[in-house]
Amino acid sequence: MSIEVKNITKFYKDQKALNNVSFSIKKGEIVGFLGPNGAGKSTMMKIITGFITPSEGDVLVCDYNIKTNKLNVQKHIGYFPEHNPLYLEMYVKEYLLFNASIYKIPKIEVEKIIKKVGLTSEADKKIKQLSKGYRQRVGLAAALLHNPDVLILDEPTTGLDPNQLIEIRSLIKEIGKNKTVLFSTHIMQEVDAICNRVILINKGQIIADENLVELKKNQEQIIEVEFDFRIEKQFIKTIPNLKSADNIHDTSWILTFNTTKDMRPAVFDFAHDNGLKTLKINTKNKNLESLFQELIPN
């Protein structure tokens, strides 16, 4: 196993942040660590990286125990912390060369990493001049410099605009082809876009551990649609594979289909055949969303 977490408990004075947490991650997996703010995600990641010490339990990374062999654990880990601390007055290449000197990494490797994460055009700029998306790339580059086997990414997509999100998602997926990635987020769409497994944590406890491929096998598809005119439910029911239809407001409907096939074309065809215009249409991953809502209610 690349990561083995065994019965980890963490107290901050009288507050229990983690309660007997256990899970393991195999080499090559991209695992989403999903949960609401304050669930214990960052605490668990800091324990895995050796940044803080657990009150109870053990963590092994690439067979090294964090308690007895912290240095070797950290050699195998690339860590992207939640707030991505950077020296803003340094130039991008200067900052990465500085980090490389700590690991005694040749300059040529820095050039390779700059190219790999798409920073070539920004390499000679000061970090404070960069957009949030490029700053995230600098953080990822620093985490990758020593070619770690395991990447720990704590909220790497927070605050990015849609274009930056797509770029960072693609970069993480590419990196994940050759490394084990534990990816922390509170956004379900990020897990669905990047990961092949999800671990759900709430109030310091693991409450679900699911393979996304298995989760999606029998998933129901939800489509939220708004037409330009009201229509009776009996007509809506003529759409193929429709399991249920709920009129949520005037001309807006929530349609649930018992198929993974994209049913948006069928909804568009229905609208056309009934002389309607489709003003809005959105799809949702019911299983992942419902799993989150069922296990972590508001």
Rank of each mutant, 00 (worst) to 15 (best):
residue 34 L to E: 03
residue 34 L to F: 08
residue 35 G to Y: 05
residue 35 G to M: 09
residue 36 P to L: 08
residue 36 P to Y: 09
residue 37 N to P: 13
residue 38 G to F: 05
residue 39 A to N: 06
residue 39 A to I: 03
residue 40 G to S: 05
residue 41 K to R: 12
residue 41 K to Q: 12
residue 42 S to W: 04
residue 42 S to Y: 03
residue 42 S to D: 05
residue 43 T to Q: 12
residue 43 T to L: 13
residue 44 M to T: 15
residue 44 M to H: 04
residue 44 M to N: 09
residue 44 M to S: 15
residue 44 M to R: 02
residue 45 M to G: 02
residue 45 M to V: 13
residue 45 M to Y: 04
residue 45 M to N: 05
residue 46 K to G: 01
residue 46 K to L: 00
residue 46 K to V: 04
residue 47 I to G: 02
residue 47 I to Y: 03
residue 47 I to N: 02
residue 49 T to D: 03
residue 49 T to N: 14
residue 50 G to C: 06
residue 52 I to P: 06
residue 52 I to T: 14
residue 52 I to E: 05
residue 53 T to R: 14
residue 53 T to S: 09
residue 54 P to C: 10
residue 54 P to N: 12
residue 54 P to Q: 11
residue 55 S to C: 09
residue 55 S to K: 11
residue 55 S to M: 10
residue 55 S to V: 09
residue 56 E to G: 04
residue 56 E to D: 12
residue 57 G to D: 10
residue 57 G to V: 13
residue 57 G to Q: 12
residue 58 D to T: 08
residue 58 D to F: 10
residue 58 D to K: 13
residue 59 V to T: 06
residue 59 V to G: 01
residue 60 L to D: 02
residue 60 L to T: 07
residue 61 V to Y: 01
residue 62 C to S: 14
residue 63 D to F: 11
residue 65 N to C: 13
residue 65 N to S: 15
residue 65 N to G: 11
residue 66 I to Y: 02
residue 68 T to H: 09
residue 68 T to F: 02
residue 68 T to Y: 07
residue 69 N to M: 06
residue 69 N to S: 15
residue 69 N to R: 12
residue 70 K to E: 10
residue 70 K to W: 00
residue 70 K to M: 12
residue 71 L to C: 05
residue 72 N to I: 04
residue 73 V to I: 11
residue 73 V to P: 00
residue 73 V to R: 00
residue 73 V to M: 06
residue 73 V to K: 00
residue 74 Q to N: 10
residue 74 Q to E: 09
residue 74 Q to F: 03
residue 75 K to I: 04
residue 75 K to H: 08
residue 77 I to H: 07
residue 79 Y to T: 08
residue 80 F to Y: 10
residue 80 F to S: 00
residue 80 F to C: 06
